[in-house]
Write a protein that binds this DNA or RNA. Structure first.
Lengths: 344, 344
DNA sequence: TTGAAAGCGCTAACAC
DNA sequence: GTGTTAGCGCTTTCAA
């Protein structure tokens, strides 16, 4: 009978197997604990014979070192924390995935904390994060709380902010300028002959700055740019309703710049449902260039944000810093790129 | 030369700020370290006056307890690990998000490990996970490696498998039957009058079992069911090409059951591009009922998988177990539901 | 090349 | 209600 089946039928509680330690290995291998530690961490500082003996015992009894103990001793958790608004939605996914991969390759694990768009949760979350003494903290998206900023600063833990660009980061930063995106998209649309663009803007500060950039550029062209606000996080459904609202309020609109590709997909679907043809009746620009953007019908013109690169760079900054390397380039602007496809 | 050695030789090393400990608080508050510990963890076991004094010092100097130290002392990391194929794609997102939230509320943090669909990576990843002595491990999706199974079992760490149903879980399980989904969707489509269904099937074992279930049910109805295989992870683009292939190979197809909602979206887009009308010319069924399914045009008939509930239950099982509660229900079948909308 | 001692920061158990 | 002692498992330092 299998163990689990037995437990269910009889109701036995599992005996908690006593976890193995260096002492167990040391005893069985006939060496000191220190030698075990060396055999595992710096094998070249141990004679081939002892090394082999220790390795064999480790394999045989299935010893796995305790990271809490070594972390405490070394003051290095080999852990990095990512703090983000939410794991849901395609926006930050690529960044987090590549961050996790890059860290993994360097022997670090990733811990996740979601603020859930509530500023009140941020402080408690940061406290929980700092308790673990991670080797670094990656902020994906914005940190609102002022108290949180202070906590991070005084913790002395390396911090990388992402997805934004500010001249005054907490510590390090890998991002891009939302204002410049607004400006660029405005010029791009104007260059294509669009004269009555509308922004479908998420209710977050970064979207707000894209709007400002867009309007600034539009001002020099003598254009007025209305904005339709959408609650964050943006969804396909909110894209459909936002374009419906746009058509009702500003029927002469000839192009929309959406706060995300998902929003843009909603727009495409709603326009298609209304028998309107993109780009003939309406130009559509997305943001993110997530996986499906190129596969839509028509393929979506969008602003490519290199989330993978951002994650990799963030990982690199933290790993270097935690190994004591001086970081000269505290602020990295990874830029963006307007990918022109058939929706404009 | 090791990277760190090289860095040291260049000589640009930064000194770390000394982190605060209970001793600092104790000294400044004029009490013992034990009293500080009590003031923080069991405030009701401390006199109101000392409590206030300690709290004030803590706030003033910004002391944050060291979780590695308490974790080591208590043998409780207050950490749960989630191991999954990839963070990308909408499939497991809801599960992971709700898992993180539920754990957070119970005072646990979530650590992420991605196997990246490579069995070879699984063992190394599990080793890294077990080192941290998490209070539980949640397997999202399947664990392929036999050695990994063994490692997990002998670690004694509570394990919850999800997104599947097997009579022989490693430990605990929260999932649903993929075979029954196949059967149900087959009967559903047959009931709607469809006679030539095709499956767009991802190349993973769970999708395979849905196909088997579908074919078994189809067999009793005298139907043959071809399958078009799509590489995991499924994407919108692979949906477009899969339906194109389907139309070429099996032109009389009257319905498709897709391995994910994203795949189904690709199908809808491709059919729309070809001037085919859903459901008149083709019935489409998705899997997952992710956020956008109801907002598509037409709204997508799909199999609702309650990822949020799965995450919550997994969290609950682990938290209970780690608090010493006996778990009688080792296997929880959360079922599924066919949500009929307008695409069939 | 190997080992003994000490301590990372915290808290259970036991005194007072 | 508070303090003292000891030790969680590991690894740096120093001695052999």
């Amino acid at each position: 009978m299998r163990a689990s089946a037995m437990q269910r039928s009889i109701g036995t509680v599992i005996k908690k197997t006593q976890a193995l330690t260096v002492h167990d290995v040391a005893r069985l291998a006939g060496v000191s604990t220190m030698t075990v530690s060396r055999a595992i961490n710096t094998p070249d500082k141990v004679s081939p014979l002892t090394l082999q003996k220790v390795k064999q015992v480790v394999a045989q009894i299935g010893y796995v070192p305790n990271a809490m103990a070594s972390g405490l001793r070394l003051s290095r958790a080999k852990l990095v924390a990512a703090v983000l608004p939410t794991l849901t939605g395609p926006v930050f996914q690529e960044t987090v995935r590549s961050l996790a991969s890059a860290l993994d390759q360097a022997g670090y694990q990733l811990m996740i904390g979601q603020t859930g768009y509530e500023t009140s949760r941020e402080d408690a979350l940061l406290d929980a994060v700092i308790r673990r003494r991670p080797d670094g903290i990656v902020l994906v998206g914005i940190l609102h709380s002022v108290e949180g900023r202070r906590q991070l600063l005084s913790s002395g833990i390396p911090v990388v902010e992402t997805w934004d660009l500010t001249p005054t980061p907490i510590d390090m930063l890998v991002g891009f300028s939302h204002e410049r995106i607004g400006e660029s998209v405005c010029r791009f649309l104007a260059g294509k002959g669009y004269r009555r663009p509308v922004l479908l803007t998420a209710s977050d500060p970064r979207a707000q700055r894209r709007l400002e950039g867009f309007r600034r550029a539009a001002g020099t062209l003598g254009l007025e740019v209305p904005a339709v606000v959408v609650d964050a996080p943006t969804t396909l459904a909110s894209g459909r309703s936002a374009i419906a609202e746009t058509l009702a309020l500003y029927p002469q609109t000839d192009a929309v710049f959406c706060s995300s590709d998902m929003l843009a997909l909603g727009v495409l679907i709603e326009l298609n449902a209304r028998g309107l043809v993109v780009p003939r009746d309406m130009g559509v620009v997305g943001l993110g260039d997530i996986e499906f953007a190129r596969s839509l019908d028509p393929p979506l013109t969008t602003v490519k944000i290199d989330g993978v690169r951002m994650g990799e760079l963030a990982a690199q900054l933290i790993v270097s810093r935690s190994q004591g390397v001086r970081i000269d380039q505290h602020i990295v602007d990874i830029g963006f790129e307007i990918v022109e496809r058939d929706s404009t």
